[in-house]
Design a protein around this nucleic acid. Structure first.
Length: 478
RNA sequence: GGCCCCAUCGUCUAGUGGUCUAGGACGUCGGGUUUUCAUCCCGAAAAUCGAGGGUCCGAAUCCCUCUGGGGUCACCA
């Protein structure tokens, strides 16, 4: 059957801007499929569109995949047996292959100008016909066309058959077929000498011995062109697997306009890469044991492509946020968490207290970037709203509460959670103050906030001096 | 519009002819623990399996039609 010795998969991103969530999604499944079969995962840069090329975009893709910890075996950065891995550096190869097709008649020179093509399509639209190249240049005798091509601007087109059909067994969708006659004479080589995606992808996938093409559903309708090219060259076709498309809430294809699709922005927002990976695993695939939380290593072990779903999942951040919390509080060690938190740790954060503060806020972190807002009162001045201090009570009582509390705390033998708790609880009981009112008032006085980590723990970390000072300041405000 | 792909709770999904009066997770709501928030625990609501026809003793599961959604129709990838 297949003559591919090893499983080789690839992603072929084009450096046109941001590193897209969809790229990570496709990369993840290509990686996992290859590794599950002891194969190789390759990154090839498809930079054949000079108009859309963005300087530095290539690096952003590598950075994003590095952040996600999806490793590749071959690529521009790592090299490999099939260099170069950047299409703009493979022009010679494409030209040779175009020549073959030209010689055997599966491709032809086309001299139509963009204006001419546009006019042709407009006319077809008017006639309610399919907008397709009408093949006017396909009848030019090869010798003549070849001569004209030497000095005339031209492209090279694929001569699609007008009968027969393209059929393949998609590893995810099963049998798919298209009539060749409905498919346009695709441009293979642009007038600037660069290949189009459709041509380069086939040549490169063949030369790089890609055994499985795992890509987005959006490519289904161009697969017949690719299949015909394999046929024209007499090459063995890889197995195709078309993944479902990630979607916006309105079910359209995941887009920049309607969603945050930049991997780097997820990084900057404080998502844990492992959580994003885990979340992506669940888009169109489910764990055989029904698990929701599992790591990349486990995914690689238990992945089978037959569990792949064909419906396009909506990229909904709700579950991702929950997962991020799970990873923060259950999956990372404290040291790993501190490390992950590093870019989100304010410069004035007292690092010597990190070990004490972090356990207090850990279960409250949803995003790593929440660190600052959850901990700032430990190391920055607070502002207390007097109205919050007086809630559910009155000035006289609150003043008395503060006075007595300060007096007791000043005499506390040891500034520890246990001592603090005994002290404040006995005060509260002795004077029969309302529990929720009293503790909330102290909390506000000491932190300026109504939602904080447990009070005694907070006071312990804050220290005697600072705590008492804040209680005094609160008393002044009443 | 042509062609192609798809269709189970709001969302991610389980389910491959009978154990489904459809299971889990997120979210939502309610309750418990508690000095607040969060965590944690318990519970509830939530899909007449897009609709209509078949096939079969029996269908979410197989077939057909329709509807709906999506993708694609470039010298972009």
């Amino acid at each position: 059957m297949s003559s591919f010795l090893t499983v080789r998969t690839r992603i072929a991103p084009s450096p046109t801007g941001i590193a897209h969530v969809g790229t990570a999604y496709i990369a993840l499944f290509n990686y996992v499929f290859a590794k599950n079969h002891n194969g190789k995962f390759i990154i090839r840069i498809e930079d054949t569109d000079r108009g859309r090329f963005v300087e530095g975009a290539e690096q952003v893709i590598y950075d994003a995949l590095t952040w996600l910890k999806i490793p590749h075996d071959e690529g521009v950065d790592l090299g490999g047996p099939f260099e170069p891995y950047r299409q703009s550096e493979r022009l010679e190869i494409y030209h040779q292959h175009v020549e073959t097709l030209l010689e055997n008649g599966t491709a032809y020179y086309c001299f139509c100008s963009p204006e001419e093509l546009q006019a042709m399509r407009a006319e077809q639209q008017k006639q309610k016909q399919l907008p397709m190249y009408d093949g006017r240049c396909s009848h030019i005798p090869y010798a003549e066309a070849k001569k004209r091509a030497k000095h005339e601007k031209h492209v090279v087109r694929l001569r699609m058959p007008d009968s027969g059909k393209a059929e393949w067994e998609d590893a995810i969708r099963g049998h798919v077929s298209f009539e060749y006659a409905l498919i346009d004479d695709q441009v293979l080589l642009k007038s600037d000498g660069f290949p189009t995606y459709h041509f380069a992808v086939v040549v490169d996938d063949h030369m790089m011995q890609i055994s499985h093409v795992i890509r987005g559903e959006e490519w289904i309708s161009s697969t017949p062109k690719h299949l015909f090219l394999y046929e024209a060259f007499g090459w063995e076709t890889p197995t195709f697997a078309h993944m479902p498309l990630l979607r916006n809430a309105d079910h359209s294809k995941l887009s920049k306009r309607k969603n945050d699709v930049s991997l780097i922005s997820y990084m900057n927002k404080g998502y844990i890469p492992e959580a994003l990976i885990n979340f992506l695993c669940l888009m169109g695939w489910s764990h055989p044991e029904g698990k929701d939380i599992f790591n990349l290593d486990e995914f690689r072990r238990v992945f089978t492509i037959d569990r792949m779903q064909t419906t396009g999942p909506i990229f909904d951040l709700n579950k991702l946020a929950w997962m991020n919390g799970i990873y923060i509080r259950e999956k990372l060690t404290q040291d790993q968490l501190i490390e992950a938190l590093q870019p989100f740790t304010p410069t004035d954060f007292p690092m010597d207290l990190m070990g004490k503060i972090l356990p207090l806020v850990r279960e409250r972190l949803v995003l790593l970037s929440d660190l600052e807002s959850l901990t700032d009162f430990f190391y920055r001045d607070i502002s207390v709203n007097p109205a919050e201090l007086l809630k559910k009570s009155e000035a006289g009582v609150v003043t008395e509460q503060l006075t007595r509390t300060i007096a007791e705390l000043e005499q506390l033998s040891q500034w520890s959670v246990a001592e603090l708790e005994t002290c404040l609880r006995s005060l509260q009981e002795k004077y029969d103050w309302k529990k929720s009112q009293y503790f909330m008032m102290i909390r506000v006085a000491v932190t300026g906030k109504t939602a904080t980590p447990p009070l005694f723990e907070t006071m312990e970390v804050l220290g005697r001096e600072k705590t008492i000072e804040r209680l005094r300041e609160a008393k002044e405000k009443i």
